[in-house]
């Protein structure tokens, strides 16, 4: 799980071009939108693309997306839940 969260942070930084942000700057449980990283609705679409491209997970329901993209922790938990046991 820890390795997945670190990888996810690196992918978020790269996908959103967060130039001055390092993985250790991102709190696992901090909200990605509004406060925290201060991301917006276009970023949420970019994160959906990230999930699809790197983890082959397609989020179809926007309401579900809102929950998944709450924090790095929630994203990692969602990815893990979709991976074959």
């Amino acid at each position: 799980m820890e390795a997945l969260k670190l990888k996810l942070k690196q992918q978020i930084i790269e996908a959103l071009n967060l130039q001055d942000t390092k993985p250790e700057d991102i709190d696992d449980n901090a909200p990605l939108f509004g406060e925290g990283l201060g991301l917006d609705s276009i970023d949420s679409l970019e994160l959906m693309v990230l999930l699809e491209r790197h983890y082959h997970i397609k989020v179809e329901d926007p309401r579900e997306g809102r929950k998944i993209l709450q924090s790095v922790q929630s994203m990692a938990e969602f990815i893990q839940s979709k991976q074959p046991a």
């Binding site: 996908a15 276009i42 679409l45 970019e46 693309v49 699809e52 491209r53």
Partner: peptide, 13 residues
């Protein structure tokens, strides 16, 4: 590269 799937919105916009 992604066969018309998983397209980033930013460069499109």
């Amino acid at each position: 590269d992604y066969a018309e799937t998983a397209l980033n919105p930013t460069p499109f916009i």
